[in-house]
């Protein structure tokens, strides 16, 4: 199993506040690595650093063996990383279909920057691909609906569809089930499981809900006050007394 993402010795300070302290994290191809930790542990900051939204104060990040520490987020996206946000970010004034079309076109533009600029409407192949992504994620009915009128859960699915449109190797999902009802949450987990399996993706996610963590994760790292305190197989992490103390103790009922 080769390493897809490798972060070594990551520090991140905001002024005097140290959010991440010497974090090591790696992700092998086909692995599903879940980062858990209480609120304020630095999960979202770690996500920002890994995806390129912000630069680490120290440490190195490599992707497919290439050092991307100082590479902007869009460059990492171009080399195969899809990323979602806690509150889904989609183009609100565009229809669901247009959102995906823009994503497919962004992928195509990276590959061939000058091709097809004289074409006005989206190419047939692009539109077909977007349609099938919509259908695959169960959004076919929302095709012509502006994203601003979609429900929270539908926006999350739309965002996932846009990420799939990039044909990524690695999918980074920041709390994909946050704010969902238990039923919706189970459906979301099944959907993520399905798309990861079907597209042969690797997965890095942060999550609060222990049910989700143990259903999706093949490896779990626990972040506590900006440090990785435990990293291992789900069973190991579950059995770890330290983790029980700082985290699972309060949420054990969900698991």
């Amino acid at each position: 199993m080769s390493t897809l993402l490798d972060a070594r010795g990551i520090f991140k300070d905001y002024g005097r506040i140290k959010v991440l302290k010497n974090v090591d994290l790696d992700l092998g191809e086909g692995e599903r690595h879940v980062v858990i930790g209480p609120n304020g542990a630095g999960k979202t900051t770690l996500f920002k650093v890994l995806s390129g939204e912000t630069r680490p104060s120290a440490g190195t990040i490599s992707l497919n063996g290439r050092d991307v520490t100082h590479e902007a987020g869009f460059m990492r996206t171009r080399s195969g990383v899809g990323r979602s946000f806690q509150v889904a970010r989609v183009f609100l004034e565009m229809t669901a279909l247009d959102n995906i079309i823009v994503a497919v076109e962004a992928r195509e533009a990276t590959r061939r920057p000058w091709a097809g600029l004289l074409r006005l409407s989206a190419a047939r192949t692009v539109a077909d691909e977007a349609e099938s992504l919509l259908a695959a994620l169960g959004l076919a009915a929302a095709r012509e609906t502006p994203a601003e009128t979609l429900s929270h859960g539908d926006r999350k699915r739309l965002e996932l569809a846009m990420n799939l449109a990039l044909r990524p190797k690695l999918l980074m999902l920041d709390e994909p089930t946050a704010g969902m009802s238990p039923t919706d949450r189970q459906a979301a987990v099944n959907l993520i499981d399905k798309v990861v399996r079907e597209n042969g993706l690797s997965l890095l996610l942060t999550e609060h809900d222990m049910g989700v963590v143990f259903q999706l994760g093949t490896r779990i790292s626990v972040l506590h006050y900006g440090e990785v305190v435990v990293s291992g197989l789900p069973a190991e992490v579950r059995a770890n007394p330290l983790v029980r103390e700082i985290y699972l103790g309060r949420n054990a009922g969900h698991a």
Binding site: E53, A72, G73, F74, R89, V90, F91, A106, A109
Partner: peptide, 22 residues
């Protein structure tokens, strides 16, 4: 065209656009 649509994405949500590789 495609260029105009991507510009609209940049205006609508720069962060999302950036994480589409734009």
């Amino acid at each position: 065209n495609r260029f105009g649509r991507s510009l609209q994405g940049v205006k609508s949500d720069p962060m999302r656009a950036s994480f589409l590789g734009i």
